[in-house]
Design a protein around this nucleic acid. Structure first.
Lengths: 335, 335
DNA sequence: CTGTTAGCGCGTTCAA
DNA sequence: TTGAACGCGCTAACAG
């Protein structure tokens, strides 16, 4: 029936509910003999403790929440995979919220979470955030690990070597002969966006290239807006190389180049942060900085479970390495 | 603090907990004046009802579960988007489980769910299932809507016109001049797999083509295995057209053709069921049967909420239409 | 319209 | 080693 309670077990076994409860928790106060009887009956009746009653007593749900900007993005989808894997291993459930890059929604979800429904939170911050008070607030009240998209106030986080990756990508373009290298920026208010931009700037300097501000395109989440900016970039500024800080902007570049009859990598070479698994099937195949998304999710979850277990809140930062995979969009022929 | 209880509200307002509880639920038994006072205080203290206590009383969690084979697949990612949208609108939470196409895991999750933790379930059945008893079981005990991957015993489901789509795709290849059309089959035990196969077979017949059994490739979830089968297909059987019943097999075709120096669409034309949003950027761009994934998720969730609201279990089937988008992989030049 | 009481199922006293 | 009693916070039944 799935409706068996501790009381019922107790009655059929001629024991008190307290004894059964302790036995089920494998308490040392209970004799092996009774434990055996209890376990056996519980198993045979497929007893499942009522999670509400348990939560009410223990203030614990064995559930963690994940707040993501979006899910139809390979990075996040893979990250969830990693998170889910760990959660399952630890016997935790996973509640998912999609902020769609709205910090308003994010704040709404977080308020919800503060209703002590979940034991912990994994979050990749929404992009349009300027006001981080809800994030500041929750960190004090709920164990929270930030991954990929952290913010300046985050204590526990798992990130990438974004500075270095952007640096490498830019340098790679330079080595491929590019001298007018554009940077498609987004996530400007967040650490990850800033790191990538800084990496780009630093590489320009080391390559002895002058910074041309009009080569830095500040994109938003408005597709039409981005498209217009890219059109202008390609038609007027005409860079010979592009570093895209996000997958969807790279796709937009492809479309824009197609429209304008600009060839890749002939006229312009492109590198992008991306976890697209069909990157090598694109026309031309796309040179990517690929993040270890699954691993990031896994490590973030691991960090959270460690905190949940030890109840200690020491700030911790784990940095995983992304990989530059050279393909035809930067004129590197691949096997 | 997020720790305010109804009792505390009652004490400061000199009311009983029952009155406060009713007031918060906007019961008509309570005067507008008191309601006002209660709401005001509740809001100012940011009162949040304890979900455990509430669940314990009401046997309801305002949470639904989603069981999916995988998430790093555009179809499922988009479907979740649709589901999440509805859930949020209805004030429901979303718990996610990934079966990784293992019916064993699926059964484990379902057993978990039977612990009456969630109010309803949306599921897309795992592929390797032969034993559906856990699915039969849960339908009787928990409102369940199946989407895309249903099984023969499912009562409530949202699916596509798979037969027709596969038929159209096959006919499209025929009209492009293909006479040796191969079908990459998977999900054989499920309705969706069967429908697609039948559509293919029916089209062959209507086109006056003889059925050559060696053109039907039964794939599995083992990538190496599939690769070997495709290699054999392309080298020995040499079809001039392929209908792929799943996105990842189409990708594998692309890789295999690249390896073997077989050109698409010159030597072989390809159509695939796929929600890949970069299908048009592939080399060559891929002709797809694209499912309304977001809408499927949304409708499935809607159906579930309707059942939750009305408590009625009449079998219902909703069929949404997929779209055949012709591109270069079947030699159709696109703008 | 408001209050009293009881109990959802569990885990934790404290006493036996 | 076991059991009786209580309370987590909320809501439903019944009084007043």
């Amino acid at each position: 029936m799935g409706e068996i309670t501790i009381r019922q077990l107790a009655e059929t076994l001629k024991l008190s509910t307290a004894t059964v409860s302790k036995a089920l928790q494998n308490s040392h106060e209970i004799s092996e003999a009774t434990k055996g009887r209890v376990f056996e009956l519980a198993k045979s009746l497929n007893y499942r403790p009522n999670p509400f009653a348990r939560g009410l007593r223990r203030h614990k749900s064995n559930t963690i929440a994940v707040i993501l900007p979006e899910i139809a993005d390979n990075f996040f989808a893979q990250a969830i995979n990693g998170i889910e894997e760990m959660a399952r291993q630890q016997g935790y459930h996973l509640i998912i919220y999609l902020s769609h890059d709205s910090s308003e929604r994010e704040a709404f979800f977080i308020n919800d979470l503060l209703g002590r429904y979940v034991d912990g939170l994994l979050i990749s911050v929404s992009f349009d955030g300027i006001d981080f008070t809800h994030l500041d607030e929750i960190q004090g009240k709920l164990p929270t690990v930030f991954f990929d998209r952290t913010y300046s106030g985050s204590l526990l986080h798992v990130t990438n070597n974004d500075f270095e990756s952007a640096y490498q990508a830019t340098k790679h373009l330079f080595e491929c002969g590019c001298r007018q290298i554009s940077f498609l920026s987004i996530l400007q208010g967040l650490e990850v966006g800033n790191q990538r931009l800084q990496g780009y700037l630093s590489a320009l300097q080391d390559c002895g290239l002058m910074l041309n501000p009009s080569l830095i395109i500040n994109c938003s989440n408005n597709k039409d807006d981005n498209q217009a900016k890219l059109q202008h970039l390609m038609k007027v500024i005409k860079p010979d190389g592009i570093v895209s800080s996000v997958e969807k902007l790279a796709k937009l570049c492809y479309y824009t180049c197609n429209d304008l009859g600009i060839t890749i990598p002939g006229d312009v070479k492109i590198v992008s942060f991306s976890n697209l698994d069909s990157a090598s099937l694109l026309n031309p195949s796309l040179t990517t900085i690929t993040q270890p998304a699954y691993e990031i999710g896994k490590q973030a979850a691991t960090m959270l479970f460690k905190v949940l277990k030890n109840n200690n809140y020491e700030a911790e930062n784990m940095v995983l390495r992304s990989e530059l995979i050279k393909r035809q969009s930067t004129n590197v022929s691949v096997v």
